[in-house]
Structure formats: structure tokens, C-alpha cells
């Protein structure tokens, strides 16, 4: 399946999350939303209007929020625990480990405005460590959807999945990439474009930039395979090994530190199972300067033309 070449309309994936959780709640009385004074930023206003008693706002208290989520799950509710990803994962990491992952509590974590979505608010509000922090935990699927369609599909999947998981959402607009009606499968990458010269792998807000980079490369006669890999854990080993053996080079890009994120997870598979040249794009292990989200992505070498250049340099190493 090939992605549309240009999909000009951009969507805030939080809207897809909000619509889907409201739909789920209408059909399942167990669905509750838990938040930390983040009704607006988590787009839970509609949910609150429809199900006021099922919107549990604990105040500005993330550790308490995750613990309360675990208790709600124990009592038979189906909690979606929502907050800015930086505070949700950073502040409450031990609760996520002990109360959710280790205890196998049926809690769905929804990290909002992850990556550098809060651009100008600075590194305290950037969540470019959350893949690393969460993917090391056993029993916690980590998922970063690439568009509104995959977001809705992943939220539906999460409601059915028995156990904790972490959905990492942004607020930065992205075009549609997956077909309407797409069904989310945990740990399964989506082939957006096939190619033989190298493979570009991304998730979240970077997938559409990879597609654009592949267009640029195509114009230069380079056939890039593009994989959308929303699931960071469990990682799709089969798709990675196939990419390595069939295309001979892998370029990754993510709105995350290059240490410990998607690129690292892919590199772990490549090194052990199918060593080929690789390049990881992302935030290069620094606290970002002041600036808006998309500008920062460009600054860190993830503008489509810069991705294409990195791809050309990588191919030379084959």
C-alpha cells in the first residue's frame, strides 16, 4: 500500500483520541478518564460534558494520578490516564513501573503533547525521553501513532487489550497516512511505500516527514522503503530484519532523543540479527534551544530534504 503523495490537511491527533474515548465510553460504562488539571490540554472537555462523573481530575499530582488509575483498574474500571507526556512519564515513572507494569494493572496511559510539541516552553516540557523510560519496562506496550486514523485505531485497541500500555500522542498537526478503517496491530509495522535501496523507519510526527523524504529521494532515482513503526515495544523484529536484508541500510527518525528511543530499539535488532549500516535521526542528546516544535525538528536535521540527504549519505556506506 502506498501513502498519498500529498495530504495537505493536517489533524491534531488529540481530537481523534477525544472522539474515540467518548465513543468507547458511550458503549462501555467502565471507561473513565483520569487527568491532572489537564481537561483542556488532553481534550477531555467533551468527555467531561457527556460523562461528568467519569472524569476524575486529581489536580496537579501525577504520581497520585497513576496510582489512582491502578486502583480504579483493580476496582473493575477501565481508566485512560491522560496528561502531558513529560509529567505523566517523568514524574510518575515509578508508579508506572510498580503499580501498572509490574502489577499488570489494566490502565491505559495517554501521553499528550509528547516530543517537542511544547516547543517554546522548553526542555522541562519536552518529552523526548519517554520512549527510553517506558520501553525498558516489561509488560508495557509503547505506541506512537502517526496520524488521526492510527490514533483512533490504537485507542480502540487499547480498550480491548488486557493490561497496561502507553499511547504517546502529539498535538502537532499531521496529514492522513493510513487508510480509513485501518486496524491497529500491536508490534506490526505498516509498509507505506516499498523500495529496495534503503528503508526509512519512523513513527508519530516523523512518519509523514519520512514519506516526503522518500518523494525527494524518488525524484533522484533512489527507491526508499518507508515503514511506519508505531509500536516501539514490542518492536517488529521481522519487519526490521526484512528491511535490513532486502534494502541493506536503515535510517530512523523520531521526535525523541537518539538515545534509547525508536532508533535504538531498531539498532538492537539490527546489530544482533542483520547488521547493516544505520543512521539514527532525532534529538542528539542535548536540551533543545527555545523555538517552536516543527522548527526544532528542522533544526535537528529532520526536515524532509535533510532526511533525504542523510539517506543518500547512508547509502554510500552500504
Amino acid at each position: 500500500m502506498n501513502a498519498p503523495v500529498s495530504a495537505p490537511k493536517l489533524y491534531d491527533c488529540r481530537d481523534a483520541f477525544a472522539e474515540t474515548i467518548e465513543m468507547l465510553a458511550a458503549n462501555d460504562a467502565r471507561v473513565v478518564a483520569v487527568c491532572n488539571d489537564s481537561v483542556g490540554s488532553s481534550k477531555l472537555g467533551g468527555f467531561k460534558a457527556k460523562f461528568p462523573e467519569r472524569l476524575i481530575n486529581v489536580g496537579i499530582a501525577e504520581q497520585n494520578m497513576v496510582g489512582v488509575g491502578a486502583g480504579l483498574a483493580n476496582g473493575g474500571q477501565l481508566p485512560f490516564v491522560c496528561g502531558a507526556s513529560c509529567f505523566l512519564t517523568g514524574r510518575a515513572l515509578e508508579q508506572i513501573k510498580a503499580d501498572l507494569a509490574y502489577s499488570n494493572a489494566n490502565v491505559k496511559l495517554v501521553g499528550i503533547s509528547s516530543g517537542m510539541a511544547y516547543g517554546e516552553l522548553g526542555p522541562t516540557h519536552h518529552s523526548i525521553e519517554d520512549f527510553a523510560w517506558t520501553r525498558v519496562l516489561p509488560n508495557l506496550p509503547v505506541i506512537a501513532p502517526c496520524d488521526r486514523i492510527e490514533t483512533a485505531a490504537a485507542v480502540k485497541w487499547a480498550a480491548e487489550y488486557a493490561g497496561p500500555c502507553f499511547l504517546r500522542l502529539s498535538r502537532v498537526g499531521v496529514p492522513d497516512l493510513l487508510p480509513e478503517g485501518h486496524v491497529f496491530e500491536l508490534g506490526k509495522a505498516n509498509l507505506l511505500r516499498d523500495g529496495t535501496d534503503l528503508t526509512l523507519i519512523a513513527n508519530g510526527t516523523l512518519t509523514h516527514r519520512m514519506v516526503k523524504a522518500a518523494d525527494i529521494l524518488a525524484a533522484r532515482g533512489i527507491k526508499a522503503r518507508v515503514l511506519n513503526m508505531a509500536t516501539v515495544r514490542p518492536i517488529d523484529e521481522a519487519a526490521i530484519v526484512a528491511a535490513a536484508t532486502q534494502t541493506g541500510a536503515i535510517l530512523t527518525a523520531e521526535e525523541h532523543s537518539i538515545y534509547g528511543g525508536l532508533g535504538s530499539a531498531i539498532a538492537e535488532v539490527v546489530v544482533e540479527q542483520a547488521p547493516v549500516p544505520m543512521k539514527r535521526l532525532g534529538v542528539p542528546g542535548v536540551f533543545a534551544h527555545t523555538g517552536p516544535a516543527e522548527w526544532l525538528l528542522d533544526e535537528f536535521g529532520m526536515a524532509p530534504h535533510a532526511i533525504a540527504e542523510a539517506a543518500e549519505a547512508l547509502i554510500k556506506r552500504k
Binding site: 511544547y118 517554546e120 516552553l121 522548553g122 522541562t124 516540557h125 534551544h289 527555545t290 523555538g291 517552536p292 522548527w295
Partner: peptide, 13 residues
């Protein structure tokens, strides 16, 4: 304040 590369970002450094 909040401009690209300014040292005055949304939270004090």
C-alpha cells in the same frame, strides 16, 4: 521572549 534561540524561553533557565 519565546523567539527562536532566545535564552528567555517559557520556563526560566
Amino acid at each position: 521572549f519565546l523567539q527562536p534561540n532566545s535564552r528567555l524561553n517559557g520556563h526560566p533557565n
